[in-house]
Computed example of a mutant assay.
Amino acid sequence: MTSVAVLGTGLLGTAIAKRLLDVGLEVHVWNRNPARLAPLLEQGATAVQELQGAAQGRNAVITVLRDGGVTASVVDALGPLHGTTVMPMGTMGIEESRQLARHVVPNNGHYLEAPVLGSKPQALDGTLLVMAGGDAQVFEEQRPLLSHLCQEPLLVGPVGSGAATKLALNQLIASLTHSFSLSLRLIQRAGVPVKTFMAILRPSALYAPTFDKKLQRMLDHSYADPNFSTDLLRKDLRLFLEEATTAGLQDQGLSGLLSLLEQAKGTDLDEQDYCALHELTALT
Rank of each mutant, 00 (worst) to 15 (best):
A208I: 01
Q151L: 13
L201E: 10
L237C: 10
G191I: 11
H28Y: 15
A244Y: 08
L237Y: 07
R143V: 01
Q151D: 13
G8Q: 07
L186S: 05
L145Y: 01
V6R: 13
P193M: 08
D76F: 07
D67R: 11
E95G: 00
L145F: 05
G83T: 03
K166P: 10
R98T: 06
Y207P: 03
G90Y: 08
T246G: 02
E50Q: 15
K195P: 00
P115Q: 05
L201Y: 02
L186D: 00
V116H: 07
E95A: 08
I16C: 10
A247T: 03
T165H: 00
G8N: 04
S147M: 03
Q250G: 11
V86E: 14
T9K: 08
Q99G: 06
L40Y: 11
V75H: 11
T71M: 05
D220W: 00
K195S: 15
E262H: 04
Q137W: 05
G162M: 02
D22N: 13
R66A: 14
T84K: 01
K265G: 10
V105Q: 09
L154K: 13
V27Y: 11
S161H: 11
A264H: 06
Q142Y: 02
H221C: 13
A114K: 02
L12A: 09
F228C: 02
A123T: 08
L283R: 15
G24F: 02
E141P: 00
R217A: 10
Q49P: 00
G44S: 09
T165L: 08
V86H: 08
V104R: 12
L41Y: 04
Q56P: 03
R58Y: 00
G253V: 08
L7K: 07
N170M: 04
I173R: 00
V74C: 07
T14F: 05
L237I: 07
T246D: 10
L233A: 05
S183K: 04
G118K: 03
P153L: 04
Q52M: 03
V104I: 15
N59K: 09
V74I: 12
V48H: 09
G53A: 12
E242F: 07
R234G: 12
H110Y: 06
G44C: 12
G8C: 03
L37T: 04
F211P: 06
Y223R: 07
G126C: 04
V192N: 00
L21S: 06
L254M: 12
K214T: 11
E113F: 11
H110K: 14
N59M: 05
S147N: 10
Q99C: 07
K265E: 15
E50I: 01
L261A: 03
E140D: 09
H82P: 09
L186A: 14
G68N: 09
T63V: 04
V138C: 07
L254F: 14
H110P: 00
Q151N: 08
W30K: 00
P39R: 00
V4Y: 06
G191F: 02
L241Q: 06
